[in-house]
Write a protein that binds this DNA or RNA. Structure first.
Lengths: 202, 202
DNA sequence: ACGGAAACATACCTCATAGTATGCTTTTGC
DNA sequence: GCAAAAGCATACTATGAGGTATGTTTCCGT
């Protein structure tokens, strides 16, 4: 399940994510990704069987980033409010650190499966769905607990969950990494967005 | 500027928006749109010079829907909180009523200009940017006033604005129009999301 | 050092799709 | 009623991009 990713595969994924972020994963061609690496198609098709598999790998890794970062911050001893705030803050900070990957994820948000698809790609899409569900459940559990303990307002859980998660991802749509990139800036954004998300629930 | 849209043009735009929503505006072909109308490419290319012009027309109309719906609800006599809540509610309700159009808009959110582009398409993209800026300013003004009058929390305006607007659009990603479609459902969603957006600011 | 496998590059094929050129049908203006 | 323009279908072209087959180099184990 958790494939070991070699150095070159990681490089290819980084380049693919950047290209897909800039041009859109449907518009950007394999040649574009290869050219951004100073290479040719052969290198990419040696490691990935198809373009769909490549984009799926990017989306899987994106969810991995946030999943591995947010999971350990959940502390069953703390209150739902405290947990949610810490999770939200970590989420935003992680997303801002791996921006291209998550921009690809949001490009495919709420889309149907592509026109033609192989069996292998179907498995990858199923894995993506599984990972995203697993990650969403992380927040769903906390939000649900918060509502039951009267810390959060009583309202439709799914609607509130998706709304809050999208609010936390809002920076993906406009954030542009600066050259002299201070951690304080990302910190401020993560602080503000997590605060807004918490307020939207409470 | 405000082109009169004939009956057939409106039909084509509706079909295009539905196809683009289902398959993605890059994946769906002109033939797909034409086939969903029971027609052929000739009909579409007679009314729109290129595919880029068609998608731009969809995006323009999407912004028009919300712009024309939300603008009249702003009442300078009311408080920023009251104004924002009414605007947010109207926004969500309008979006849910013209869902395919807004799904196309969000597909293109935060994307660079396509690879090759004509002069006419450049004008359309400029018009899209102008309309969206005009619409965002509608909310920006209210949110800014709310911060100055201490009704809203003091925080970065642009970050808060984009976060709240995306929260209000969150339903686009998961909402599926039901067959026996009660207005109450849409009303509930709009009520909840506008309430969450207001709480995120206050 | 050497055989073989991995890691690429190169050249080519194939096909979907945006766009065009043309012809037919219907409506409209006078 | 008739010419002319609008509305649309059909057939075709052209090109970009996904994918493959094969050659070439680098790396590694023994």
């Amino acid at each position: 399940m958790f494939e070991e990713l070699s150095k070159t595969k990681s490089e290819i994924l980084d380049a693919a994510a950047s290209c897909f972020m800039a041009m859109g994963s449907d518009v950007a061609s394999i040649d574009d990704v290869a050219h951004s690496l100073g290479a040719t198609k052969g290198r990419i098709y040696h490691h990935f069987p198809s373009k769909g598999a490549l984009t799926s790998a990017v989306r899987i890794r994106a969810t991995m980033f946030t999943l591995e970062a947010v999971t350990p911050v959940v502390d069953s001893a703390k209150t739902p409010s405290e947990n949610f705030r810490a999770m939200a803050y970590t989420h935003v900070l992680t997303v801002l650190g791996t921006l291209p990957y998550h921009k690809v994820v949001l490009q495919h948000a709420g889309m149907r499966t592509p026109k033609s698809i192989t069996a292998h790609e179907r498995e990858l899409l199923a894995e993506i769905h599984s990972l995203r569900t697993q990650y969403e459940d992380l927040f769903r559990t906390v939000v649900k607990a918060g509502m039951q303990q009267q810390e959060f307002r009583q309202q439709n859980l799914s609607v509130a969950l998706h709304a809050v998660l999208l609010l936390l991802n809002s920076s993906v749509f406009w954030y542009i990494p600066r050259d002299g990139e201070q951690k304080t800036t990302r910190h401020d954004i993560a602080e503000q967005l997590s605060g807004m998300a918490l307020a939207a629930l409470a």
